[in-house]
Amino acid sequence: MKIAGLLLLLTGWFLVLSALVLLRAAWPQALFVLAGVGVELLALALLFRSHAIPRGRRQ
């Protein structure tokens, strides 16, 4: 889960870079950047979830 979260973060960033490289028009580019940020938010949710101590087993 942790590794998947970290890889998903990088994927989101590559999506943002791809938007800059591949798209010229302003709105499609902005939407693609937003999609990349959305993927990063999903990755953060995964990372927080994977690092959270399960209830009943906390230190």
């Binding site: 970290l6 973060l9 989101g12 960033w13 580019q29 990755a43 953060l44």
Partner: peptide, 25 residues
């Protein structure tokens, strides 16, 4: 000023999407 918010968003995406995995690793 056109597109400034996209530039800022790209910067934030780089911090979260690249710097965080890098520093974690």
């Amino acid at each position: 000023f056109s597109g400034q918010w996209v530039a800022q968003l790209v910067g934030v995406a780089t911090l979260v999407g690249f710097i965080l995995p890098l520093t974690y690793g």
